[in-house]
Simulated assay, not measured.
Amino acid sequence: MLYTVAGTGFVALGLAIGWYGLRPLAVVPSLLRATVRDPSEVTEAGSFVACRGVANESSETLSAPFTGSRCLGFEFEVTERQPFGVGIPWFQAHLDDGVATRPFTLDSPDGTLTAVPSAKRFALDTESTTITVGAGETPPERIQRFVDVRDELEPVARWVRMIPGLGTRRYVERRIDPGEEYLVAGATERRQNEVVLAGDLVVTDRSPRGFAIARFRKALFPTVIALVFVGVGVGGIVL
């Protein structure tokens, strides 16, 4: 009975990890099937399209949290090296994350298309900027100001600082920079007599194939862990 209960728990946890790991792959088949189009060619609402152009502001810009760069959208994550969890002996424990976005335009010599990413499920597949701060180091001024206003970011625990190599924090930032070329994919909608890309958009500085490979790599580790948990759980139930 005990093995069955424990096995069921392992299976449930494995399925949850698998869902988390595989969910970002849902858009990959649609993107690989789509033909990359110029912004001027997107004229129909209610379809999935992939469009490449130069991103430019259509209203206001944002200030990125760690670099202060002027941008059209950003995603950040803060992790800390700790001695437990998946990835023993050390792994990067999640401490905080967040996003912000504004509507922007994709421009080409032949036309313009407005993109309106959803802030609820906004994720960037772009090159990241990472600032690493050791447990005993003083963070750069901008990061220190960021930490001071985030309730989620407590100082590194004293017991963690006492262990060499632990307590190092990584501040990761990804951005949509004005004037840079991006591939944006998602559903088209008609808003105020204008066709726009809106909702849960893919925003990447890679090719469709490069985007797919990057997402598969990210999904590989949680998928393997999920299979291990499910295997152990099924073994417990069978026993």
Rank of each mutant, 00 (worst) to 15 (best):
S59N: 12
D148I: 00
F146C: 05
E77F: 03
I163F: 12
R52G: 01
I131W: 04
F221E: 13
Y20C: 01
V54D: 03
T130V: 15
F74D: 00
E194M: 13
A50Q: 03
G233Y: 03
V203R: 01
T188G: 07
V133C: 05
L153R: 02
A12R: 12
E181I: 11
S30Y: 10
R161Y: 01
R161C: 03
T105V: 15
D97Y: 10
N193R: 13
A135D: 01
S118L: 09
M162F: 10
R102Q: 12
G167V: 02
Q192I: 03
V149K: 13
I237F: 04
E57K: 12
G85P: 09
R102E: 09
L113I: 11
V234K: 00
V234T: 06
T168C: 00
I143S: 05
P208C: 05
F84D: 00
S40P: 04
E181F: 14
T188S: 08
T138W: 03
T4C: 05
T61L: 01
T101C: 15
D177H: 08
A12Y: 11
V156P: 02
G231N: 10
V172G: 02
L15P: 04
P140N: 09
V149Q: 11
V99F: 07
G235A: 11
Y20N: 10
F91G: 08
A93E: 05
F221W: 13
V116Q: 06
A6E: 04
D97N: 13
V99R: 09
T67M: 02
S69F: 09
R142W: 00
F76I: 07
A93R: 07
A45N: 07
T130F: 00
V5E: 05
R191Q: 13
A123Y: 09
R37S: 14
E80L: 09
L62W: 03
R174W: 03
I213V: 15
V172C: 05
R158Q: 14
G111C: 05
L239A: 12
K218I: 10
R52Q: 14
C71G: 01
A100S: 13
C51V: 15
R169W: 08
V172W: 02
A135C: 05
L113Y: 02
T8D: 00
L15K: 04
T114A: 10
A115C: 14
L106F: 07
G236W: 06
G210D: 04
Y20P: 01
T35L: 06
R33M: 00
A135N: 04
A187T: 12
T4L: 15
